[in-house]
Design a protein around this nucleic acid. Sequence first.
DNA 1: GTCTATATTACGATAGAC
DNA 2: GTCTATCGTAATATAGAC
Lengths: 213, 213
Amino acid sequence: MSDVVENSRREKLVEAAATLFHRRGVEATTLKDVAHASGVPMGSVFYYYPTKDDLTAAVIARRAAHVVDMLERHSRRAGPVGRLHALVDVWMSDRYVDAQFGCPIGSLCFEVARVRRLDATAPFQTLIDWAESQFRALGAGAKSRAHAAHLVAALQGISLMASVMSAPDLIAGEVAYLKNWIRGLRILDEHPRRQAARRTAERAASTHRSRST
Amino acid sequence: MSDVVENSRREKLVEAAATLFHRRGVEATTLKDVAHASGVPMGSVFYYYPTKDDLTAAVIARRAAHVVDMLERHSRRAGPVGRLHALVDVWMSDRYVDAQFGCPIGSLCFEVARVRRLDATAPFQTLIDWAESQFRALGAGAKSRAHAAHLVAALQGISLMASVMSAPDLIAGEVAYLKNWIRGLRILDEHPRRQAARRTAERAASTHRSRST
DNA sequence: GTCTATATTACGATAGAC
DNA sequence: GTCTATCGTAATATAGAC
């Protein structure tokens, strides 16, 4: 669940920084901007975060924690298909801001990684690992890792393109595309006979479930 | 073919700027860096490009022209599958630098678009339009636009992730994935009978071609 | 057209009073 | 712990000699 409620002053700073880093990028936002947006005077930001890199690392850690929380929430859903759909639906909901500023995770991690003064691998590592285990649960076997990378890449790429083109509809289209792909994966990886059997069983199970709940 | 050979001084400046913008990002590279890398003294860069935005616009135009040239080259290939494969193979060849600094097109256009002082839509517009017409030639019909967006998004996303994770293999894996997907698309959009007929015909044609050339 | 020398501004960071 | 005042540096950009 992660210790989110912290000292309040520190928390206000990372929160403001996270928003500004998303909207303008980290190089383009000044610490004065962060101070102003958070209502904390300039001198104090250096008390809490001695350097800009320290603040940036805190923003990355915050994003990583949010990813963990989000995936934990989605993991409570019924099957792997529903979980993966829940993940891509996040991009659907966020599409209007992402089409302005890009994905908050991707843009941040990329900018930081390119200069390479900080480690920013955590959010993507978590995302790919989680997706992989969903694909594995779905029966994709050895292909699961590639599927996971493909899924996360598609979401990142479409966010980038949508922001370049100012086109939230690009995200909506890709989300539909991906959900359909995920749905269809089960069909391809199975023998027709088994497939028919499983589907009949599932239909029965889902009818039963929707009645009993 | 676009007027590439220009005055030499201007050209040296955009070339150096393009490289540095790719390696560090535009915000993070100073005009002094560009002056030094191109061997042009500080005062002269302002003679050719009065502001940093002017230089940045020139770099974007240069990238856009390169995309046009590249696609023109790939358009000379035999069929739509071969053309699309040729496109994704570019990412395969570039994977080691892209895994360090990201895709030179995506990283540049995104950074510029987020601050939104310049138009950076051209490269992606060209890329998507071209891919769409290939998918259409392939018989994907109304789905062609979505396929095109999906393809370019996948390439952009995997470049971003590869650079965050310092993992060129991610790109190699995704390229294999995409080539296989493109190959398989024909199968899905066709009736099994027609499919078998076409494949037999193609096999014969390709055997004939490989002999005659 | 070319380049040196410099103006101007604003950034990250510090010192030190409270 | 908190905040004001300010330092040193480096960025974009200009002026003006050649």
